[in-house]
């Protein structure tokens, strides 16, 4: 099978790989580059577990071909903590007990991050809308919604 080169920035570092043409970004990240934080819950675009941020936009990495990401800037959940300090969303998910099996968590955090990046002070409806592409089978969603709202409140810019 023809190999094609891909090159992008992942969580601040340059990555370059030769991959089989047609490989999804999800499989390239997990199997080639070794970032297993995006999860494959369906490989068909219906669960959100594979969510990543590409050039500031939320994307389902199972529905993207890696070769279309050349030159892109990609963020995954494994790259959110800086210098061992958790991102406020990670902190909030921890503190409010918003993870159970944790399989949906990286995708949820990605979706929430894009929301907070664009809408630092979201309403509950904004959060619901932002998470509506992500499936969680354990929590019943309410704890996750609360975690995202708590993260937003923790942002000093949102101090009333």
């Amino acid at each position: 099978m023809a190999k094609v080169p891909v090159q992008f920035t992942l969580n601040g570092s340059e990555k370059a790989e030769f991959i089989d043409s047609g490989t999804t970004l999800l499989n390239a990240l997990r199997d080639k580059i070794g970032d297993t934080s995006p999860k494959g819950g369906c490989h068909q675009g219906t669960c959100g577990a594979c969510s990543v941020i590409i050039d500031g936009e939320l994307r389902l990495s199972c529905l993207m071909l890696a070769e279309t990401c050349n030159g892109a800037t990609i963020t995954t959940t494994s790259g959110l903590a800086v210098g061992g300090v958790l991102h406020p969303l990670q902190r909030a998910f921890l503190d409010t007990f918003a993870t159970q099996c944790g399989f949906c968590t990286p995708g949820m955090i990605m979706a929430a991050k894009v929301l907070l990046d664009h809408t630092p002070n979201p309403s509950r409806e904004d959060v619901v809308e932002a998470l509506s592409g992500n499936i969680c089978r354990c929590t019943g969603y309410e704890p996750i919604i609360r975690a995202v709202l708590a993260a937003a409140r923790a942002n000093p810019q949102n101090a009333a």
């Binding site: 369906c42 219906t46 998470l131 509506s132 499936i135 089978r137 019943g140 996750i144 919604i145």
Partner: peptide, 17 residues
């Protein structure tokens, strides 16, 4: 066969619990 056809309440369909 997928999460679009197999229905479950999403974050917008929650009962006050």
């Amino acid at each position: 066969t997928d999460f679009n056809q197999y229905l479950m309440p999403g974050p917008g369909d929650l009962a006050e619990t």
